[in-house]
Design a protein around this nucleic acid. Structure first.
Lengths: 355, 355
DNA sequence: CTGTTAGCGCATTCAG
DNA sequence: CTGAATGCGCTAACAG
């Protein structure tokens, strides 16, 4: 079983009475006679032989590791992505090394520098902000890269993006259909990838339906966080009285709902709330929050697949995939509750059967 | 700056007109004449030389990677730990490789097998269930290991544990002090490390205060998840009418609160709720949930420090640290609200100043 | 089908 | 202080 000294192919070969090459072949399932294979396997078993990952990597030029760099580990959407990526790459025999980059674009550059050391066979990154410098580094590196998030036109990089525009449009359409007329927007920083995309989507969705987009109905949180959401919501409620609030992510939506209810307003009776990303946060909130599902898990899985494909074939043409959004409807946008009256929203999953 | 071909010490040596040994010395800050150092640095810069991580690892016998294995990435407490570990090890120049093990103890064994390949210099793990087999594997491996979570007496392994017992006691004490008399307990699976510790703590805390611990006031969720929490809460509310509910983690607490409010009961007026782990979940809930802080981040940081110390000196005696819990009080246990009356809980952080 | 040999890129003996 | 040579453990040519 287990042995004290760390064993090597040489030791196994010696014990089995064969050459190191044969040991390597048997252990890698290359053609070998059954008699030798048996001896090797026996010796390997007896010595508790385990191949050395680093030595193998140095030789074959592959580390069997892929790096994942996300912006904010505090945001559940990144946790979802991490999980999804983890599964796909593990399936393919790769390990996941986590490289959380903060909000600072310099962190990404630094990360890419580090990756040149070759400790990973590829990297998936989902930066909040994509600067020209990052693009330049990304396109010039020979390391396989997939970015999650929209890239400027013409950049030849594998990337998978959400369709925020359509996502926002679906949400606005639904809110309008259920009688909401004053739809406010609580965005995150507009100088980020998701922030700018979602603002564009909001404006387009509103204007195409002849809905007003006055300045007092739009606020920009300083960050995609709960704390920033609280502040933004205070600002919004001080300057406007929307009957629906669309939030750029679920964290913001939860914060907005907190402020709204603290003002004595009811959700969804007085104001409907919609989040984005459809994380557990939206489902666990009370009342639960309708959220635009931007396919985070699917994007992450697809990114992992693209990366594995590129590692397999570095010369393949770069690819861009777009995943389609849908609306996960929950209590925060329920109709049926008579507006302006104190009626509880339906909570279908909690109703008890008549026994 | 950047160059197409990957460069090596040999190429740098050639360009600098010195030996590879000198290159290695200069780059590792070993004694060398300033004239040679300058030439080497210049050549390295011009060639965009970056040392190869795998080759270095093979040579020096260290990978500069540490593995972290957590049970459930869906639970925010593990995200917190991941983040904390990440920071400490990065500081020390290590990378973090993530190895999420599921609920199955076999996954841990498999993980340990894999680690024998030597892709990490040590591992931190926080398993939900610790079987004898896991202990056996852990104590017999020569890989530095730190476990987060309580270990049986006499096991000589570095480990850092939470003091759940005291944590629960603080919570119960506070609930009693604020007039709660019927304190129910929603636990997770009792065959897990936290599940058993927290149950023990609950029983001890209640009995030491002469509070009743009838069977109908205790339910065991099938898992430490929101969905399991919903079910458990249904069971509890069907069989008992507590005026306070202590939950074994925040996810359960959020679920319990959902069910409670759906029954038309108010938190905290009719029933107080207390969670454990003090994750963002508790803070973001509405009303926000009082939670026992078991020092997740601190435990993780300490675990990382212990691991680094052991990697540094494998023969050092094993160490056990215990971190002290405290109670993060929030709205869900507020007093002052007149019990049984429809009065809103205080929300201090949301009150607007009089302007 | 099998064994011998040569490196992968680096740090580190040992001579000089 | 510097350079030539060795080998970490493994796989892949190449020869037999």
């Amino acid at each position: 079983m287990s042995v004290l000294r760390k064993s090597t192919v040489a030791l196994v070969a010696q014990r089995a009475g064969v050459s190191v090459a044969s040991v390597s072949r048997v252990l890698n399932n290359l053609p070998a006679s059954e008699s030798i294979a048996a001896k090797v396997r026996k010796a390997a078993e007896e010595l508790g032989y385990v191949p050395d990952a680093m030595a193998r990597s140095l030789k074959v030029g592959r580390t069997e590791q892929i790096a994942l760099a996300v912006a904010d580990v505090g945001n559940p959407v990144y946790v979802t992505m991490m999980h999804a990526v983890s599964e796909v790459v593990r399936e393919a025999g790769f390990r996941l090394v986590l490289s959380s980059t903060g909000n600072d674009p310099n962190d990404v550059v630094e990360l890419l520098d580090n990756l040149e050391r070759g400790y990973a066979d590829g990297v998936i990154l989902s930066p909040l902000r994509i600067t020209d410098e990052i693009i330049a580094r990304l396109t010039s590196t020979r390391l396989p890269v997939v970015v999650i998030g929209s890239l400027p036109q013409g950049v030849l990089l594998d990337n998978v993006r959400a369709d925020s525009r359509t996502g926002v449009d679906i949400a606005v359409a639904r809110l309008k259909a259920t009688g909401r007329k004053h739809i406010a927007f609580v965005n995150g920083p507009v100088d980020t990838v998701p922030g700018s995309a979602r603002l564009t989507g909001y404006l387009a969705a509103m204007e195409s339906r002849g809905l007003p987009t006055t300045a007092d109905m739009q606020v920009e949180a300083s960050d995609f966080t709960y704390a920033a959401g609280l502040e933004a919501a205070q600002v919004l409620t001080a300057q406007a009285t929307p009957d629906a609030i669309l939030c750029a992510n679920d964290l913001l939506a939860v914060a907005v709902m907190k402020v709204i209810t603290s003002k004595g307003l009811r959700v969804p009776e007085d104001v409907a709330i919609v989040g984005m990303d459809n994380t557990d946060l939206a489902d666990h909130a009370n009342p639960s929050i309708t959220s635009v599902d931007l396919g985070s898990a699917e994007r992450a899985r697809e990114a992992a697949r693209l990366l594995l494909a590129r590692i397999e074939d570095p010369s393949r043409p770069s690819e861009t995939t777009v995943v389609s959004p849908w609306l996960a409807e929950r209590e925060s946008t329920a109709e049926g509750a008579s507006r302006g009256k104190n009626v509880k929203a339906r909570k279908p999953e909690l109703e008890e059967g008549v026994s």
